[in-house]
């Protein structure tokens, strides 16, 4: 308990502590502005730019080494005859991933973030100066491998795809709720390794995702043996069709992102409130 970080404030004393104490010469201004407003503003700008060019943009997120680049290689191989694809790569260092994508014959631009653990809307905007959108159908943004920070930043993209490789464990959605709550699709990757693992259950992983009130589809996928490839391609194609239909109606697609709790806070009439009595963090 201390007086600096707020840990001394409890539900019992909050109203007293937080009450405005009128003081001479001090005015309190209510703001209620999101701390990501600059990023969000840039993200909306990026999104209209993408929409002008009618290109569906997918943000790929996962921990490092769960197979994002391998997924892209396999996807490009399969689709490069029928769709125009490009990739923006985010990494702390090296251009290795960009070289792998370019070897597949599609344009790729590398954002090297140095020490930054995520891409933001400004970095993506800068990358767009180096990548022509004309004629593209599909742009993948491969985010920095990290299950924490990238989830908080809207890049102006349309869909979030989160990869979970089977070696990471089926409890990842429960451990990283901010990330998995943002998923429009969860891809369970490296399923060719399942015979060697006795402790990964795709059903459990899916259950942990649904416990976040996220009913996103789940696809089991292996870029090694091609399992799940057809379902993934079908999902992608359906997303492109849906996006193009929205554009025809002057609308766009937004990924699942945070909404600042709908909020601050309309107390609805006939609802029962269940206070937390069992607030031990859920483990499974």
């Amino acid at each position: 308990m201390c007086n600096t970080c707020g840990c001394n404030i409890t539900p019992g004393n909050r109203s007293l502590v937080m009450a405005e104490k009128p003081k001479k010469g001090v005015t309190t201004v209510s703001v209620l502005q999101n701390l990501l407003s600059q990023n969000n503003h840039q993200a909306e700008h990026n999104r209209s730019h993408f929409d002008e060019h009618k290109v569906l943009v997918i943000n790929l997120m996962s921990s490092p080494g769960s197979g994002k680049t391998a997924l892209l290689e396999a996807t490009i191989k399969r689709l490069r005859e029928s769709l125009k694809i490009a990739v923006i790569e985010g990494d702390l260092e090296t251009e290795n991933d960009t070289k792998r994508i370019q070897a597949q014959g599609v344009p790729a631009y590398q954002i090297t973030t140095g020490t930054a653990c995520h891409l933001d809307a400004h970095l993506v905007h800068n990358a767009l100066h180096h990548l022509a959108l004309e004629g593209l159908d599909l742009l993948f943004i491969e985010n920095v491998g990290n299950l924490v920070c990238p989830a908080s930043f809207d890049l102006g993209h349309h869909r979030n795809v989160v990869l979970l490789s089977v070696t990471e464990g089926d409890d990842k959605p429960a451990k990283y709720p901010v990330m998995f709550r943002a998923a429009d699709l969860m891809l369970i990757s490296k399923t060719d390794l399942l015979p060697f693992l006795d402790d990964f259950s795709s059903q459990k992983a899916e259950q942990n995702l649904h416990n976040l009130a996220n009913d996103a589809p789940v696809i089991e996928f292996s870029s090694k043996d091609g399992k799940g490839m057809d379902i993934w391609i079908t999902w992608l194609q359906a997303e492109i069709d849906q996006y193009q239909a929205l554009l025809l109606n002057q609308q766009t697609q937004h990924p699942k992102v945070q909404q600042d709790g709908e909020l601050l806070h309309v107390q609805p009439g006939n609802t029962k409130f269940y206070p937390v009595s069992h607030k031990a963090v859920h483990t499974s």
């Binding site: 201004v29 703001v31 209620l32 701390l35 945070q258 909020l263 601050l264």
Partner: peptide, 11 residues
């Protein structure tokens, strides 16, 4: 999921 600047007290 709030991440909000709620208020600012100014002298």
């Amino acid at each position: 999921d709030e991440l909000i600047l709620a208020s600012v007290a100014l002298c």
